[in-house]
């Protein structure tokens, strides 16, 4: 819980700095925009958080975003599939990819890093293959479908809530309840911390691990659909590029430990928002977008270092107290 206040503080500081440097940061248009981007990335981040909690990693989700984001308009506009078939197909494809990863990792015991790294290469390659590297998009059609991502819920005068935020709300609530209130959530947290002890306690660790990868790829699929509806078209070469890294960074900033077993959905949401505010700050404040990665990298590093230092101070404090108790 304490962890989330740290990252929340960091988010607040970045917001204040940006607001003081740029007048347009707090404009309704910009806030809506940041919120929409945060919501889209938040969905991906929650997915990868599940995998990180098991102690694994999912590097493939940017490519899953690309595959799904290209496949949907491709099926609809090039092959004229009915929407009612095309949409479930691409989502099922994403879930199947997760299942495939999960089985390779648990049954064949291939390292998650390798499996999902190959996925990263594979799915983007496939998307580039079937589209012939050409941009696919909806053009002027499917306006009603695009409302899924572009619709706005009137909220305050002059300020609306973007639709992806509603999707994120549902995903986040379900994920948080799952993680904290169900036995399966407890299973995930236990196996992430100590898979051995979890197995010895009768927890179906392999099934739970597979589930985590299915959730990760499934939410990447949902994200892919929303992303492509949002921007209206997808270029297979770079659609979803580096999204896995944004998502992983958001999860880690939000308190997920790459060692596994640690993480909260609320933290991940704050982390995802922080990432997008940082990107927004760079666009608004500087004229040079090319420093984006450097700044994001530096902020994450500072956050992680601060967290580690706080952890060590706490540990030392606890040891001192224990010694005092023992001598009393």
């Amino acid at each position: 819980m304490k962890k989330i206040f740290g990252i929340l503080g960091l988010l607040l500081v970045v917001c204040l700095v940006t607001a003081s440097l740029s007048d347009s940061f707090l404009s309704a248009y910009n806030v809506e925009n940041v919120l929409r981007r945060s919501a889209l990335f938040g969905i991906l981040s929650i997915g990868v958080a599940f995998v990180i909690i098991t102690g694994g990693i999912d590097l493939s989700l940017g490519s899953v975003v690309c595959l799904v984001g290209c496949a949907l308009p491709w099926l609809l506009t090039v092959h004229h599939w009915p929407l009612i078939i095309a949409l479930p197909t691409v989502l099922a494809l994403a879930l199947a990819i997760g299942l495939f990863h999960g089985l390779l990792i648990t049954k064949l015991r291939i390292q998650p890093f390798i499996v999902t790294l190959c996925g990263l290469l594979l799915y983007r390659g496939i998307a580039r293959g079937f589209t012939g590297d050409q941009t696919v998009g909806f053009g002027n059609e499917f306006k009603s479908l695009r409302l899924l991502a572009t619709w706005k819920l009137p909220f305050l005068p002059g300020f609306d809530l973007p639709a992806p935020l509603l999707f994120l709300g549902v995903v986040a609530i379900v994920a948080a309840v799952f993680l904290n209130r169900t036995i399966f959530g407890r299973y995930l947290l236990a196996l992430g911390r100590n898979p051995q002890a979890a197995t010895y306690s009768g927890i179906p660790t392999e099934r739970m691990t597979v589930l985590a990868y299915v959730v990760s790829s499934g939410l990447a699929g949902l994200g892919g659909v929303l992303f492509v509806l949002d921007v209206n078209s997808a270029q297979p070469v770079d659609f979803g590029n580096f999204y896995e890294l944004y998502a992983i960074a958001a999860a880690v900033l939000g308190g997920c430990s790459l060692r596994g077993g640690e993480g909260s959905i609320a933290g991940v949401l704050v982390g995802a928002t922080l990432m997008q505010v940082l990107r927004n700050m760079i666009t608004l404040v500087t004229t040079r977008n090319n420093v984006e990665f450097a700044i994001i990298g530096a902020v994450i590093l500072v956050g992680v270092i601060a967290d580690e230092i706080a952890r060590r101070i706490a540990a030392r404090h606890r040891a001192a107290q224990a010694l005092q108790n023992a001598q009393a």
């Binding site: 169900t182 036995i183 236990a190 911390r193 100590n194 002890a197 979890a198 306690s201 077993g261």
Partner: peptide
């Protein structure tokens, strides 16, 4: 430490680790 306990978890969570399934209601803790 390696096989019996999840060291970072509390006493409560460790004690119930093997009976979560039995004591569930519809999947909830």
């Amino acid at each position: 430490k390696h096989d019996g306990l999840v060291l970072e978890m509390g006493v409560r969570e460790n004690l119930s680790l093997a009976t979560l399934e039995r004591d569930q209601s519809w999947g909830f803790l």
